[in-house]
Design a protein around this nucleic acid. Structure first.
Lengths: 186, 186
DNA sequence: TCCATCATGTAAACAGTTACATGATTGC
DNA sequence: GCAATCATGTAACTGTTTACATGATGGA
């Protein structure tokens, strides 16, 4: 049994949860997610779907409704089994390590900028995160009311991370300002 | 001027901050980071360093100290300028979107498991995150005392995310248990 | 009528992983 | 003497991005 990649497992999960659906619809799920870690370009998603079909995890039926064909994908028995295997598997090192955050990574090198540049950058980060958290809140609320329970649990995970990040960015901003002031005074 | 990838910018930043250093030492920085998003395998790092040298952003001097040569890398003027350009650049959509979390992603499909399997999985997640957060705390404290200020700000970002994630995992655990109990009663 | 979106895919280029290969140095 | 780690790199494979190409459908 082939070891499957994360993206493959997620696609399998999406079809299990939302299917039957077209490859196009799968892609939209990624596009509209508040966490854009998978860009899921066409060149990634179509070959990936083919792989899952070849492995017998997705069934594919081409419907000729209009003139142009649509591929309807649905999960098979062995596909659902593979999904459950993934879900049950012990979280590994990468799963447990602190999520990657490109804003945090940049901060690590912030001393390379002048104080005024640093301040400007932090302002744009805080403003950007504040704007974004509104979208996340809206996304989460839509799941709390109409969604399934798992979706609302995942959504609360989005919100927790988004809030933690904004809290941290404000703290960074505050500490930089304090440092600048003490420099001006002393 | 070529647009540089995130990994390239980070390598540039590491050499700016910690250099002059060997490609091997750069790799160790990634290996020992609490966020293992960059695995930075040899096959990634050596060609990447070559690209940065070709671009004139890193200077490379091969020292023949013993018998085997060591490449000492140091950032050039234009390399430092490129680093600052990256640091000043407006955070984009991907930067501002909620960080990816594979544990959260799995939760989204958790209904595919039986209640006892879900509970077992959540237990291993919470245990794993608890164990991990100790390492993160230790890592952060080492920067609070001896590190530079930017490192300690980045470290506080690690800790905030790690804590938010554990808080969320416990909340999920709690809500799953509550749901199971109400099923048993009603 | 025209534009956006639905919908399917391919091809070239590129980046990254895994595995391999080599050999020096340091500490037990 | 031996094992771990320092240290450099390459080659094959795989997955992803970017760009291209095509055409249907539905609404203003």
């Amino acid at each position: 049994m082939a070891e499957s990649s994360l993206l493959e497992s997620v696609v399998l999960g999406i079809v299990w949860k939302l299917g039957p659906m077209t490859p196009y619809a799968i892609r939209q799920e990624f596009v509209h997610s508040p966490s854009s870690s998978f860009s899921a370009s066409t060149g990634a998603i179509y070959p990936l779907v083919d792989r899952l079909v070849d492995r017998g995890w997705l069934g594919s039926k081409t419907e000729a409704t209009g003139k142009r064909p649509r591929r309807m994908l649905k999960i098979t028995r062995s596909g659902a089994a593979a999904l459950r295997r993934w879900l049950r598997s012990e979280p590994n090192d990468a799963d447990l390590s602190v999520p990657f955050d490109s804003l945090r990574t940049r901060i690590y090198f912030l001393a390379a900028l002048r104080p005024d540049e640093r301040r400007r950058y932090l302002d744009s980060v805080v403003a950007g995160l504040e704007a974004r958290i509104q979208d996340v809140r809206a996304y989460c609320q839509s799941y709390e009311t109409k969604g399934r329970w798992e979706s609302s649990l995942a959504a609360s995970g989005y919100l927790e991370l988004a809030k933690a990040r904004l809290r941290w960015a404000r703290e960074v901003q505050r500490r930089l300002e304090a440092a600048d002031e003490s420099l001006n005074e002393g």
